[in-house]
């Protein structure tokens, strides 16, 4: 399951300063900002090769990788899943993956 709530991904727009909420604390997250559009290279995980070490998850600066519990050969494991709505394509995950299970695929736009 994604650790962040998808229902908070709206953008608040105010027409004038008077419409601003009278408070100093932000109410909404940055999830309206789908940074996936920044990507020029798309990291794709080959789950045949993946050894579930979670290096890619540990080092994602966004975070655009979340975990889902699965069973691999009778053992409990966490499967890393890349959220392409937000992945900026920095490719740290591919660089850090010890078994080179993540490949970079050029984005076409």
């Amino acid at each position: 399951m994604k650790p962040w709530k998808p229902d908070i991904d709206r953008k608040m727009v105010f027409k004038s300063v008077r419409e601003y909420p009278p408070m100093a604390v932000s109410l909404y997250t940055m999830m309206f900002n789908k940074t996936g559009t920044w990507r020029t290279v798309r990291p794709v995980i080959n789950y045949e090769k993946c050894v579930y070490c979670l290096m890619c998850w540990k080092f994602c600066p966004e975070p655009a990788i979340y975990l889902e519990p699965i069973e691999v050969k009778g053992k409990e494991r966490m499967k890393p899943i890349i959220d392409y709505d937000y992945c900026k394509g920095c490719m740290i995950c591919a660089e850090e993956c010890p078994v080179k299970a993540i490949e970079g695929v050029e984005e076409e736009r």
Binding site: P3, W4, I8, D9, T29, M30, M31, F32, N33, K34, T35, W38, L54, K58, P61, E62, P63, A64, Y66, L67, P69, E76, R77, M78, D83, D85, Y86, K88, G89, C90, M91, I92
Partner: peptide, 24 residues
Amino acid sequence: MRLPLPEREVMTPGHLACQGCGAA
């Protein structure tokens, strides 16, 4: 399963840091 780090994410994606930002 024990994870190497706390699973909780307090920070959300969508922020404005450059690609591969160490500070993020």
